[in-house]
Amino acid sequence: MPEKIWKTVASAMIEEFELEPGQMVPEARIKDDLGLDSLDVVDMVIVLETAFDFKIQDKAALKKIITMSDVVDFIVATMAAEKVEAAGG
């Protein structure tokens, strides 16, 4: 797992959703363990967009996110897609 991305995600989540640093483990489930509700998940998209300075296009993919580890994987995939798009365009 990319350390830099993990740190950015974790600190954004702690800051925005008033979570404890101890809760930030890769296997933590967003809803069940961190207590985020559906509105929080919508807000999480904006938080991630702000933290990584990109626009999340594939909103449907967000529904597959269950754990913190999934969030990081999603960010990695989105950044890779952005790079490909930038190179192609």
């Binding site: 959703f17 008033e18 979570l19 207590g35 509700d37 509105l39 929080d40 807000d43």
Partner: peptide, 9 residues
Amino acid sequence: GRFHSGLFK
């Protein structure tokens, strides 16, 4: 506790 933001929305 942690605040859910629905009420504020």
